[in-house]
Design a protein around this nucleic acid. Sequence first.
DNA 1: AATGAGGCCAACCGCCAAGCT
DNA 2: CAGCTTGGCGGTTGGCCTCAT
Length: 262
Amino acid sequence: MLSLGLRRCRKSCRLRWLNYLKPNIKKGAFEEDEVDLIIRLHRLLGNRWSLIAGRIPGRTANDIKNFWNSCLGKKVSPNLQDVVANKETAGSTAVKPLKQSSPRHAAGIKKTVLPVAPSYFVIKPKPRIPSKSIGFPILPKNIGTHREARREPPATDDRPDKEEDPLPWLRNLLGVEEEEIEEDGKQKQLQKGPEQEQEQEMILYSFPCSSQASEVDFLVKEHCREEVGSDEGQWRWEDMFLDEELMLGDLLGPEAGSKPVN
DNA sequence: AATGAGGCCAACCGCCAAGCT
DNA sequence: CAGCTTGGCGGTTGGCCTCAT
């Protein structure tokens, strides 16, 4: 929103570039898949817009934040239980479309189909901030960028030798074993068996380095496995795993594709 | 046609941590 | 080690737009 008397400092200019001018920024309508993904990610991450935006190519944190505050926030959070009830009675996940009184708004969102999740929890990854001088190649970059994360002192003292097996250190770095999950005010601790340990090792060694939310990715999978298993209609890791090369529709699983379209 | 209400969204603000001197 | 600068973040503001009356 430009005004004639607007004076921009460097910070404002940068912000404007990042949120508005940058060429790869996607403008216009939020696709159904994007809306669905935003809702899911918000359930997991809360108001961590930068992390959410990191999983939605072309959208900025500001975009998503505005979209949530003006549209989704009002519609989704307070009525989640109603939505669940609607599903049970009507046998459909579709709910009323968002306000479309104005063309402007209609251009901003095509339609909304809310996913249903009976339990509501927020994952708060334990922050780990590796030192810049760290010599470990598979570390996901930009982890722990959240403000909350930065408050935690970096775990650099027990950094492993490059020759050593990095896994225990990385595991500690990610805080996987003692990760605390909030669910309805209670706190839980994740526990793993030998098979899960093995799978975790595979995940750790194949960690996607390009994602800002790599740590979250891992924790999401861990949490989904613990909390909801393979129940239908529940969270799935495949739903969350997003690579920029992939299409959103492919990531939301078959359910998203079969949702009714108005 | 005028106007008030409500919504959208770019921009601003304050806070925090990393990096530099 | 302290102070300053810079960058990143989430929350909030306010101008502009559309619609209803």
